[in-house]
Design a binder for these strands. Structure first.
Length: 835
RNA sequence: GCGAGAGUGGCGGAAUGGCAUACGCGGCGGACUUAGGAUCCGCCGGGGCGACCCGUGUGGGUUCGAAUCCCACCUCUCGCACCA
C-alpha cells in the first residue's frame, strides 16, 4: 500500500533535505546576538533510534525551528554518549569490538535522524568515546583531584554481580542494578569518589533559582539530596576511644532512649564485643546481616532483627546506662551509623523493642491524653506532636521547642549539638570495565597516587586485542603495555590506574563542549561558552531526574568555582517529554523487546506526517500509546493542506507578502479561516514558552484548514478577500512548518515566499483577525441551557437580554415566573435566574 | 506506607468558573469507482415517540452557573521507600 498517493511527499522531503544540506541552513551562527540554546539529551547508540528518541527530538526540533523563525540565533547540537556497558555486552555476545559496534550504531542512528531533518548542526557533533572528547574527561578528573573533589577510599560499595562492576548510588536505586536488574551486593573495595556532598547545600538551594524546571524533578532532587536537621548526641562508652555519637531528628525524645543500635558494618560493632562472651554471637549476626542483599536488607516488610552486644553507654542527660545492640535496620552509611532507640516515639524502634522485649518510655504527651500511658501499654509509637514529660529540666516544652533547646543544651555541655545530615553520598566513579575513559592516575610504590601530567593527556584506551570479558577487576589490568608506566614524579616503574570512569562523567559537561566542540587546546573557550550558555531549553526523559541531572548541575558548579563559567546552573529550563508506550501500555524499551522502529513509519508515511502525528497525539509531556492510525490521519491532513496550497497558489502569489489586510470586505468564510489561522499562531507562540502542547496547535490548524477549504473561488476575486486569504494561508504555513518542515518549506515556495520559511519572519498576530463580528449567545434559565441565538459581537447587555427573553425556546420557561437575576457574560451567555 | 500527578464518548484528547465531548482516530451509511485499505459527503454519549431528562471516577459543598474551585472517598500512573 502507498498511503500517500496524491502529493509525493517523499520527493518533497528529499528535495528540501538536499537543499538545506547544500546551503548549510542548520549551521550555527558565528556570533550570536540573540541566542537560544535548545538541547535534547544526547543518545546512547544501541542499534537504531527508537520511538522515544523520535519523540524527544521531534519536540526539540519544533522548538529549534520556531526559535529560528522568531529571529533567534539558535544552537541546536547533537552527540553520542558512546561509552558504556551495552557495547561490551554486545561485543561479548557477537565477538565485535565495542568500538566497532558503537561506531556502527552511531552511523545507523545518525542516518535515520538525518532523514528526519532534525536541524542539528552536525558539525558540532560530539562522540564521547573518541580521544578528542574523553581527554577532557581526564582533564576534568585532574581538575577535580586538584580541588580535592576526587579521592580514593575503601568503602562498602554497590557491586553488581551481573555486570561485575561497582555502581554509583544513583545506579543502584532500591538495591537493584539500573542496567541488568540484578540484586546489588555490598563489597569492600578501594574506589575513586567525587565529593558531590561538598555541593549538597548549593545543589539544594540552587533548585529555588530554577522556576522553569518541573516541580516533580525538583522534588525528587530535594528528596535525593535529603537534607535533615537534627542533633548529634554523644553517649559514652569506655571501650570506644572516640565519642559514641548518634544522629537524631528527634532530640526532643532523648530522654525516651532505652537502647542504642549500631549498624553491622560499623567497625565499632566488633570492637565492642572483642574478647567478651558475646563475641561469637555478634560476629555471627554481622556475617548474616552483611550477606543480605540491599533489597532484602532494606525491605520494610521484613521483621527487624539484631543482637545484644552486652555493652552499655552512658546517657548524656540521665546518666543511665543504655544497652547497645547491633541491628541491620541501621544503615552504616547514613548519619553516624548509630541510632538512639526511642520505642515510644519511633515506629521502627517500637517494632525492634517489642521483638526483643526492650522497654519503652513515654516522653511526649499527646494532646487529649487523659493519663500518660506506660511504655509497656502502648499499642504503637506516638510520632505526633505533644509536650515533653519525663525529661527533667525540659518538661513542659513542646516537641518543637525541644528540638531547638535540647541540641543547644547538648552543645553547651560538649555532648553534641545541632547537626544537619544529608542523604546524598559521594559519587563513586571508578568502574572495573573496559569501554570507558581511563582514569588518568598512576600508582607508584614510592610516591603513592600520582596524577598523569596534563601534557601526557589523553591516556588512550588500548584498542587492540583486549580481553574485555568482565571478571571482577578491570580488564585493563591485563594489558601490560597500558599498565606499565614510569612514575611521572620519580621515574621508577609504576602502574596506571586500570579502572575507567562512570559514563555519567561524559554527560555532565557535553552541553559546554557543544559551544566549542573542536577545541584541541582546552576543554572549551570560556568566551564561546559565554556566548551560548546556559541552555535555554533542555529536553529529555524523566528518568534522569536524580542521576544525570544532579551530576550535570554539580560539575557545572565546580567549573564555575574554577572560574571557567560565570553561571552555576547549566539549564534555565527543563522539559520532560512523555514516554512512548506500546499497545499494551508498557514503556517501549530494548530490554522488553517491544520497540517499534521509527524507520518503517518514516518510510511508509513520510517524515512530516510522522512528526505531525507525534505532535498531535497528546501534549509533549504526557505519555502516549503508539497507534499507527494516528499517522494516517496526520498524512491526510498534510495532503489536504498541500492540495489547498497548490490549488490557491496563483491567487496567493498575486498578493505580495506583507500586504496589509483591509478591515472589511472579505467573505465570512475567509475571515473565519483567517481568524482560526491567527488563533493557531497565537497558540503556537504561547506553547513554545510554556507546555509545548503542540497537539492543540495541530488541532487549530486542522480547524483552519477545514474552513479555508470551504472557501469558494469567487470569494478570492476581490482584493480584500484575496489579501485576507493570502495572509491566512501564509500564517498557516508558518505555524505548520516547525512541525512539518519539508511540507512547510514546499508550501512556502509554492506561495511565492522569499528564501526559507525558517528564516522567518515569524508573523505577528493581527488582533483584527481575531475579532469576530457575530457571536452565538447561549441562553440559560436558572443555569440550564434553553436556547441559542446569534447576535452582533458589539451588542450591549440590554439588547442581548431582550432578545434572549423573547426566544421561542426560552419564553415558555419564563412563563408565570419572576426573573430575579440576570447574569450577562459578554459574547458568551445570558443566564436568567427565575423563581 | 509517604509524596506528586491524573480520572471527560468506542479510542487519543479539547475546554482550568460560562454552550462538555472541539480536533483527530475508529465505526456506520452514502457518492465516485473495474476495485478501494484512496478521495469526498453525512451520522455516531445514554434514555425517551416527544417536550424533555441524565451525563466529565463516587459522595457532599461553594456558586446564578462546576469537568474546572473546596472537603471526603475510590481507582490508576509515576517517584521515594527502615535515611533515625
Amino acid at each position: 500500500m502507498t498511503p500517500n498517493n496524491g502529493e509525493d511527499f517523499a520527493a518533497v522531503e528529499q528535495k528540501w533535505r538536499r537543499r538545506w544540506e547544500e546551503r548549510g541552513d542548520d549551521a550555527t551562527p558565528a556570533s550570536p546576538r540573540r541566542k537560544s540554546y535548545c538541547l535534547e539529551m544526547f543518545a546512547y547508540p544501541s542499534g537504531d533510534i527508537h520511538m522515544g528518541h523520535f519523540r524527544n527530538y521531534s519536540v526539540g526540533d519544533v522548538v529549534a525551528r520556531l526559535r529560528r523563525m522568531q529571529g533567534y540565533d539558535v544552537l541546536h547540537p547533537f552527540g553520542w554518549d558512546a561509552f558504556g556497558l551495552p557495547a561490551e555486552e554486545a561485543a561479548i555476545k557477537r565477538g565485535i569490538h565495542p568500538r566497532d559496534w558503537t561506531l556502527r550504531n552511531i552511523e545507523v542512528s545518525r542516518e535515520t535522524m538525518k532523514t528526519c531533518s532534525l536541524s542539528y548542526d552536525w558539525d558540532r557533533e560530539v562522540v564521547t568515546c573518541r580521544p578528542d572528547y574523553y581527554r577532557w574527561n581526564q582533564w576534568l578528573f585532574l581538575l577535580l583531584h586538584r580541588r580535592g573533589l576526587a579521592y580514593r577510599k575503601v568503602a562498602l560499595v554497590n557491586w553488581c554481580p551481573g555486570c561485575k562492576t561497582v555502581l554509583a548510588n544513583e545506579q543502584a536505586e532500591g538495591g537493584v542494578c539500573w542496567k541488568c536488574d540484578a540484586a546489588v551486593l555490598k563489597r569492600e573495595l578501594e574506589q575513586w569518589f567525587l565529593r558531590i556532598t561538598a555541593y549538597a547545600d548549593r545543589l539544594l538551594k540552587g533548585l529555588d533559582l530554577l522556576p522553569d524546571w518541573p516541580e516533580d524533578v525538583k522534588a525528587m532532587q530535594r528528596n535525593w539530596i535529603g537534607r535533615s536537621e537534627g542533633a548529634t548526641v554523644t553517649f559514652r562508652n569506655e571501650r570506644i576511644p572516640h565519642a559514641f555519637e548518634v544522629f537524631t531528628t528527634r532530640p526532643d525524645t532523648l530522654c525516651g532512649v532505652t537502647f542504642l543500635a549500631i549498624a553491622p558494618e560499623h567497625p565499632w560493632a566488633r570492637l565492642l564485643v572483642a574478647g567478651t562472651d558475646r563475641e561469637a554471637a555478634v560476629e555471627e549476626y554481622i556475617g548474616t546481616a552483611l550477606r543480605r542483599s540491599e533489597i532484602e536488607r532494606t525491605s520494610t516488610v521484613r521483621e527487624k532483627d539484631g543482637v545484644d552486644t552486652g555493652r552499655t553507654a552512658v546517657h548524656p542527660i540521665t546518666g543511665e546506662r543504655i544497652p547497645i545492640w547491633v541491628a541491620d535496620y541501621v544503615l552504616g552509611s547514613y548519619g553516624t551509623g548509630i541510632v538512639m532507640g526511642v520505642p515510644a516515639h519511633d515506629e521502627r524502634d517500637f517494632a525492634f523493642a517489642r521483638r526483643y522485649g526492650l522497654p519503652a518510655r513515654v516522653v511526649i504527651r499527646a494532646e487529649g491524653w487523659t493519663a500518660l500511658p506506660r511504655g509497656e501499654d502502648l499499642a504503637e509509637a506516638w510520632t505526633g506532636p505533644g509536650v515533653m514529660v519525663n525529661s527533667g529540666i525540659f518538661d513542659g516544652n513542646t516537641d518543637e521547642e525541644g528540638r531547638l533547646k535540647v541540641p543547644t543544651w547538648l552543645r553547651n555541655k560538649g555532648l553534641g549539638g545541632p547537626t544537619v545530615t544529608w542523604r546524598l553520598r559521594d559519587w563513586l566513579v571508578s568502574r572495573q570495565r573496559y569501554w570507558g575513559t581511563p582514569i588518568p592516575m598512576i600508582h607508584c610504590t614510592e610516591c603513592g597516587v600520582v596524577e598523569v601530567p596534563e601534557a601526557d593527556l589523553p591516556v588512550l584506551l588500548p584498542e587492540g586485542v583486549v580481553n574485555w570479558l568482565p571478571k571482577g577487576r578491570s580488564p585493563l589490568e591485563d594489558v601490560p603495555e597500558f599498565v606499565r608506566v614510569a612514575c611521572p614524579r620519580c621515574g621508577r616503574d609504576a602502574r596506571r590506574d586500570a579502572d575507567t570512569m562512570d559514563t555519567f562523567i561524559d554527560s555532565s559537561w557535553y552541553h559546554l563542549r557543544y559551544a566549542d566542540p573542536r577545541n584541541a587546546e582546552a576543554i572549551f573557550d570560556p568566551e564561546r561558552v559565554r556566548e551560548w550558555l546556559p541552555v535555554d531549553l533542555y529536553i529529555g526523559g524523566r528518568e534522569h531526574a536524580t542521576g544525570h541531572l544532579l551530576y550535570f548541575r554539580f560539575l557545572t558548579m565546580v567549573l564555575q568555582d574554577e572560574g571557567l563559567l560565570d553561571f552555576a546552573e547549566p539549564a534555565t529550563r527543563l522539559f520532560n517529554h512523555g514516554y512512548v508506550l506500546d499497545a499494551a501500555g508498557k514503556k517501549m524499551s530494548k530490554s522488553l523487546g517491544n520497540l517499534v522502529e521509527p524507520k518503517e513509519m518514516l518510510e511508509r508515511y513520510g517524515v512530516d506526517a510522522s512528526r505531525v502525528a507525534m505532535c498531535f497525539f497528546a501534549p509533549s509531556g504526557d505519555p502516549i500509546v503508539w497507534k499507527e492510525e494516528g499517522v494516517r490521519g496526520a498524512l491526510r491532513f498534510l495532503r489536504r493542506a498541500m492540495d489547498l496550497v497548490r490549488a490557491r497558489a496563483a491567487e496567493v502569489r498575486a498578493v505580495a507578502p506583507g500586504t496589509p489586510v483591509p478591515a472589511g470586505g472579505a467573505d465570512a468564510r475567509v475571515r473565519e479561516g483567517r481568524r482560526l489561522c491567527h488563533e493557531a499562531l497565537a497558540n503556537m507562540s504561547r506553547c513554545v514558552e510554556s507546555d509545548l502542547a503542540f497537539n492543540t496547535v495541530v488541532s487549530d490548524l486542522m480547524k483552519a484548514l477545514n474552513e479555508l477549504e470551504s472557501v469558494e473561488a469567487p470569494a478570492l476575486a476581490a482584493d480584500a478577500g484575496r489579501a485576507a486569504f493570502a495572509d491566512a494561508l501564509r500564517v498557516f504555513v508558518a505555524v505548520l512548518s516547525p512541525m512539518a518542515p519539508h511540507a512547510g518549506e514546499e508550501m512556502h515556495e509554492v506561495l511565492g515566499g522569499e528564501g526559507s520559511v525558517f528564516r522567518g519572519p515569524w508573523p505577528d498576530v493581527d488582533p483584527a483577525a481575531l475579532a469576530v463580528d457575530e457571536v452565538e449567545y447561549a441562553v440559560q434559565v436558572s443555569g440550564k441551557v434553553r436556547g441559542r441565538f446569534p447576535a452582533p459581537a458589539s451588542a450591549g447587555e440590554a439588547e442581548v437580554v431582550a432578545l434572549a427573553r423573547a426566544l421561542p425556546a426560552v419564553a415558555p420557561h419564563l412563563e408565570g415566573r419572576q426573573v430575579v437575576k440576570v447574569v450577562f457574560v459578554p459574547k458568551r451567555l445570558v443566564n436568567l435566574v427565575v423563581r
